[in-house]
């Protein structure tokens, strides 16, 4: 059994356990349809960002600008939407325009990130830290820090409606997870992304177009933030620029929990997917228990550290030797 599979199985067990505990401890609150739907509706906002961080780690870097790309894209969409009555186009068209504008803005931000990193050889952490401030500053400048509202009803319905009983944002989440899984495990681009993260020099020597892969990767990462912005603005029907400050920690935590190697080269979409579900259940439980957001952050920080320590012991020492002797025989080639 490979490490990846072992990790995913662990996560599945954790998820099932957590759900079982919640159901047992507070069956009325937890199993209520409304609650389940709420969880599914809220999850995608940060889940998409977590996928973004996962991709960033896979290519060997990190992207700290996700939250501000979300802000900026959301602001752009909100600006169009809040003036929908003055725009001489059918509401549906305006909505589509707003969504495209949000995604376009996000893509542009990702492109800028990618260009700074690939053309100027700026390490991703510094580049995205800088652009994070830039995009956020832009969002503040445009909105002067205030809210935007007055969105068309149809737009608000996007995130707040259900399909077959499941909130639309959750369908988006599943679709994104499937697409990313396809990308990373089955496509040539995904393969090249992993190899780039494993070693940029060897990748280059192998004929990979590093620059193209970097650009595409960062655009994808930012598009995820843009999609998240669309879902968010639709759900809460307003937009303010400093939403989601805490999401960075959460996204990193989920990526690590999901088995992503922060040095690059290895990732599991399924792992992050399961980690997201498990953590959402935990977060909901913590709300029922009356935990404050501060305590949640405290616990997330603690959880991140604990998980990394566990990974340390898993990757070194006795466990590895045991694993090798017991599990190697079950491995098939091909």
């Amino acid at each position: 059994m490979t490490t990846k599979r072992a990790n995913n199985v662990t996560l599945l067990i954790v998820l099932v356990t957590v759900v079982a505990v919640m159901t047992a401890a507070m069956p009325d609150q937890f199993l209520r349809l409304g609650n389940l739907q709420n969880m599914m509706r809220n999850l995608p906002e940060y889940a998409l960002l977590a996928f973004g961080i996962m991709i960033a780690m896979t290519i060997g870097g990190i992207d700290l600008s996700g939250v501000s790309v979300l802000s900026l894209s959301g602001v752009v969409a909100a600006m169009i939407l809040s003036h929908h009555q003055e725009i001489p186009l059918p509401t549906v068209v305006t909505m589509i325009l707003a969504i495209l504008a949000a995604l376009g803005t996000a893509a542009l931000c990702g492109l800028i990130n990618g260009l700074i990193i690939s053309l100027a050889s700026v390490p991703a952490i510094i580049a995205t830290l800088g652009t994070n401030g830039l995009y956020y500053g832009l969002a503040i400048g445009i909105t002067k820090g205030s809210h935007l509202g007055g969105f068309p009803l149809a737009y608000i319905r996007i995130a707040n409606n259900d399909f077959l009983g499941i909130p639309i944002p959750f369908w988006v989440f599943i679709a994104v997870a499937l697409l990313l899984g396809l990308l990373l495990d089955k496509t040539a681009l995904g393969f090249q992304m992993k190899m780039l993260g494993a070693s940029p020099v060897v990748a280059r020597f192998s004929g990979t177009k590093n620059r193209a892969v970097l650009l595409k990767s960062f655009v994808i990462i930012s598009l995820l933030a843009g999609a998240s912005a669309v879902l968010l603005t639709s759900k809460v029907a307003t937009m303010r620029p400093n939403y989601g400050q805490d999401y960075l920690l959460l996204a990193v935590l989920l990526s690590i929990l999901g088995g992503t190697n922060p040095d690059g080269g290895f990732s599991s979409v399924l792992g992050v997917f399961l980690a997201i579900l498990a953590l959402q259940v935990l977060a909901t439980g913590s709300t029922f228990l009356g935990f404050t957001p501060f305590f949640r952050n405290f616990l997330y920080g603690l959880l991140l550290l604990v998980v990394m320590v566990i990974h340390h012991y898993r990757d070194t020492g006795a466990w590895t030797i045991l694993k090798e002797s017991v599990f190697t025989r079950t491995e098939k080639s091909g």
Binding site: F294, N297, L299, Y300, G301, L302, M308, H312
Partner: peptide
């Protein structure tokens, strides 16, 4: 002790310290 990447560790402890403080 655990040879962990400093960036992620301090991201974690940042929230540990600050979250703990506020809580």
């Amino acid at each position: 002790r655990f040879k962990l990447p400093a960036l992620i560790v301090t991201l974690g402890t940042s929230n540990l310290y600050h979250g703990g403080l506020l809580q």
